Amino acid sequence: MSEASWYDYPQYFDMLFRDETASEVEFFQQAFERYGNGPIKRLFEPGCGTGRLVIAMAALGYDATGLDLSDPMLSYMKQRLKRRGLTATAINGDMADFHFDAPFDAAFCTFNTFRHLLTEQQALAHLNCVADCLNDQGLYVLGMHLDPEEEYDPVVERFTSRSNGTVLKTVISVPQSDLKRRQETLRIKLNAVQRSGKKVRIVSEFPLRLYTAKQLKRLLKKASDRFEIVETFDFGYDIDDPQPFDSELLEALLVLRKIG
């Protein structure tokens, strides 16, 4: 049994989030239709990982581009695109520093990817970069878990996933949390047993920035010259069930619109 980084095994990363894809994709399409300003064709995902969402949107006929810093993730994305006979663009780049010549109609960044930006400066730089690469009144769907206002004990989550003869058991925990620094350490433990019997043990830890609803509102207010908040939802992905953007919201799915 070997130790490895989660990002070096993108197939397991993909397995963990695969079940969310259909709900996210349906929500994107509904949001584009309801809140978009005209036809939406060109899409962008910063921090695309394995490209599961880019690939899903490409399969629906969208012109999709994904950006990520992980070469293994991007290579996996390109292999999956080739196997399915699909076309999309995969770019190695920094979420807080990117530029495109041709604008996009919409962008999306869900499931806490935004929280990899560990400082307010990085977060604002990211929002400005996204705004710069969108058409006027382009949409940005941004999703992340939020913290409650009061102190709490982090939950340990356990999942079992199966695909093509591989059984993957995942444990997600938070061994360290610093509310003052607004940073937590996320620990991912994965145990994979492949069809051949080979076992792979993956243990990864990485920091994420913490946000309460109030803190996220404060950040977005600083970018209010670039984006307006159109509507707020949760991870139920129900376009007909918007949620109040208040301290009770712990799963934030925001539809933002570029001002201009």
Rank of each mutant, 00 (worst) to 15 (best):
E3P: 00
D8P: 03
P10H: 09
F13P: 00
L16W: 15
E24S: 11
E26T: 05
F27L: 14
N37L: 11
F44Y: 11
A56Q: 08
M57I: 03
A58Q: 09
A64Y: 06
T65Y: 15
L67G: 00
D71S: 10
M77G: 01
T87Y: 06
A90Q: 01
I91V: 12
G93K: 08
A96F: 08
A96H: 10
F98A: 04
F100H: 09
D105C: 13
D105K: 07
C109F: 13
R115G: 01
L118I: 03
T119S: 14
Q121P: 06
A123R: 10
L124W: 12
A125D: 10
L139C: 03
Y140E: 02
Y140N: 04
V141N: 04
P148K: 05
E150L: 09
E151D: 06
Y152R: 05
D153G: 01
S161A: 08
S161W: 09
R162W: 10
G165S: 07
T166E: 14
V174R: 12
Q176V: 10
E184N: 14
V200W: 04
P207E: 03
R209K: 03
R209A: 13
A213E: 07
L216M: 14
E228D: 05
E231R: 11
D234W: 05
F235P: 01
I239P: 04
P242Y: 07
F245S: 04
E248A: 08
L253S: 06
